[in-house]
Every structure is written in C-alpha cells, then in structure tokens.
Nucleic acid binder design. Structure first.
Lengths: 216, 216
DNA sequence: TTGCTTATTGGTCGCACACTCAATAGCATC
DNA sequence: GATGCTATTGAGTGTGCGACCAATAAGCAA
C-alpha cells in the first residue's frame, strides 16, 4: 500500500503541475472517456487531493475541455504530421489511412463521439471541438494541396475533397462503440475508396505503398 | 400550483402506465438527451413518484435503452416508411433526404450521437443501438432494391449502396452539436450526391421531385 | 358492502460529483 | 537557520443519482 497514514506532500512548480494534470486528464479522456475526467479521478491518477485539481482548474469543465483538446491535438500530429520530411503526399495519405483503420484508432473515434456528444451540454468543450475539427480539415487540406502541387493528386477543390474524406471517416468511426467488427472489407475501405476517387488516384494507390516509418 | 399538499393517486393498468412511461422517456431522450432520462425526471414528467418508474423498470438502464429504441424506431418510420403506397422509390428517397436536412433532423442526429456514445458504458443500450442500425440499413436497402426492380436505380450491391449512403449521413450528422450551420451547400448535399452516384442517377434527380406528402 | 390485489407513494440509504476555504507544510530566499 | 510565499491538504457543503422497502389507497371481484 502506497497510501500511508501520513500524507507525503510533493510540491511542484505551477507549470509542471499543470502540465502533469493535463497530461493525465488527456490520457484518461482517451482511454476511459471524458466523463471520467473528474477532480477525484485525476487526483487519484497523480496521487494528489481533488482540491488541488480545482486549484489549477477552477471549473471542472475547463479541465475536460483541455483534456480533449490536448488528446485530439496529439493524435492529429501522430496521424497527419505537420512536417513530412521523408515521403510523398501519397505515402503520407496512405499512412494516414493505415493508422485510421485497425483498433488502435478506436480510442480516437470514441473520443470524438464522446466529445461531440458532450458538446451538447458543455460550451467550453464545444469551442474546442470546433477548433479541433477545423484544425483537422486544415491539416488534410494542406496535405492534399501539396499532393496537387506535386502532381500526385488531381482535384479542383482541395478543401472539399478533405471535408468529403473526413465525413466518411467520421461516418465509419461513429460505430466504434457498437461494431464488433462485423463489417465488410469494402465498407472498411470506404474512406480509402473515397479518397482515391476524390483525388483522381487509381484504385489501390493508397493501400500498397512503401510506408514512411509508422510510429507507435 | 398544481402540486397540492395532498397527493392525488391515479391508478392505471400496467400496460397503459408502462406505455406512458416509455412515451415520455422517448420524448425526453429526443429533446433533452438520454442522460436526462432518469427516474426522477420521467416521474416529474408524468407527475408521479420516481419509485413508480423503478417499479416498471427495475434498472434505470432498461428504461434508457427502451427510450432510445422507441424514439429511433418512430423516427425511422417517419423518414423511411415501410409501406410506400403513393410514390416511386426515387420520390421516397428524395423525401428521405429532404427530411434528413434541415434542423428538424438535428434532434435525431443528436440522439444517435448520444446513444452511440453512451453505448460505451451501457450494454443494454448498445444492443438496441446495433439493432436499430441494422433496421435502418435494412429499410434503406429495401427501398433501393425496389428502385432497382422498377428500373429507377442501378447498382450491383443494394446493401453496399445503402451502407455507403448511411455512412455519409452519419458523418454529416456527427456535427449536429457543434456546427452552427457554417457549412458549404456542396457539403450539405454530400449525402444526396453520394446516393445519386451510387444508384446511377443523373445529378439533381433527388432534389427536384414532386413530393409525396411530407408529414409533420 | 366487504375484502383483496397491487399500483403507487413517501421516505431512506449510499454513492459520486463539483465546489469552497481555512489550515498546513514544502521550499526558495535571505 | 529563520522567514515568507504559496502549493497542497483536509474537511465540509450541497446536489442528483439509483436502489430499496414498508405503508397506503385505488378499484375490481365477491
């Protein structure tokens, strides 16, 4: 038992503690859900009293919003890096789809469903969700624009193509909490098929590619 | 004030009371969200003690599942009727899309987001969500099959076409709690565009149609 | 009218939550 | 080593939730 009768105080700098809290909250949000991001739960996580979390986040809703934002931002960077030094747009897009299928992505789908639902009641969270949605659109649009510039993709409207692809990904991800993988191979490939069509790519271009070092 | 000191008891048959409870729960689920379907809230709604709701639904989760199921089933019947006496498949499909855009549909989108999220923690609800998803797929597939039989639609795989269309609708609906209608016209039409492509229809076929008496 | 079944009430318990605030102790500075 | 700032604790408040159960009364049947 680490919980002794005598409580050992560890005093940290505000910046460090705050970062620690946000990091823990983002982890809990991603693995257990945003409603589990409570003062008590995060306090336990860091072996600290709930009151301390209140001290850094006067309203719990702020912490929840921050947790979502941090988690979503981290995931976006992992899936669609801003800097793409070692690969073509086709390769990075293929990598994106490779990471977006498979159960590793389920946590992220769940987080988005979670956040989009909770947005109904939490205005602070809603603002962050809108912000992250825009950021995702922008990121994918950027990749597409680069691909068009390099002659790999062909589309009149990179933004519309990005949005279309993301709508399909959202639609597929909507079932992350219910589907027990009883889904056709063609259904799972729907996002890829959409992307290939939208970007004027031959069928299969986004599946069999020499990958650009998939992390994690 | 209708709440007098003396509580007036109204005794109903179990079937009637149960139906009343489910109806109220479905209404609350659709307008305020599934987490508002609590023993107290539904009791208030019917001017009845919470304990009575418990009597009919020993576990609150059952009531929530039933509320979702009833609401979703009602909405499906309104959007895609089983019997389609007065119209062609094209007309009914056009009607479906007409009803699926506009803010009247937002409540339904919210309900689905809500249910899909809550499914994460509520197995009973999850079962109902899966059931209603299948029912929706089936319903649209049926319409498409009829359209193919009558020579209006052209597709190799009605099921796949139905699923594809519904994925796009889900993807668009995902933003019901966040979007403040800052969305392109083309984006809003994404589901229709998809349907026209999947079913071999000329562009515009599903928008300008003589309607088949849109209710509500 | 009387009696019986049971739908309905009223009250209670335990739990988890956010929020508040005075008291306390870690630690940098002098 | 003493001092002061403040990060951290501990304790308490109030709310809403599901679940439980004995008491009550509505209304049907005899």
């Amino acid at each position: 038992m680490s919980s002794s009768v005598q409580r050992k105080r560890v005093r940290k700098t505000p910046a460090a503690r705050r970062a620690e809290i946000v990091e823990a909250a983002a982890r809990v949000a991603l693995t257990e859900g945003l409603e589990c991001v409570t003062l008590r739960r995060i306090g336990d996580e860091l072996d600290v009293r709930p009151g301390l979390i209140s001290h850094y986040f006067p309203s719990a809703e702020e912490l929840v919003a921050e947790a979502f934002s941090t988690a979503a931002a981290g995931e976006l960077d992992a899936l669609l890096p801003v800097d793409r030094p070692d690969g073509t747009p086709v390769q990075y897009l293929a990598r994106y789809f490779a990471l977006s299928t498979g159960e590793a992505y389920d946590d992220i789908s769940r987080l988005w469903i979670n956040a989009r639902h909770l947005s109904r009641y939490r205005p602070l969270l809603r603002d962050r969700v809108v912000e992250r949605e825009l950021a995702t659109d922008d990121r994918l649009e950027g990749l597409i624009r680069d691909g068009v510039a390099q002659g790999e993709f062909r589309t009149d409207d990179p933004r519309a193509a990005a949005v279309h692809i993301l709508v399909v990904i959202d639609g597929l991800g909507a079932h992350a909490n219910t589907d027990t993988s009883n889904r056709t191979e063609a259904e799972k490939r729907l996002a890829i098929t959409t992307a290939e069509r939208e970007l004027g790519l031959p069928h299969g271009s986004l599946t069999n590619v020499t990958d650009t070092s998939t992390p994690n």
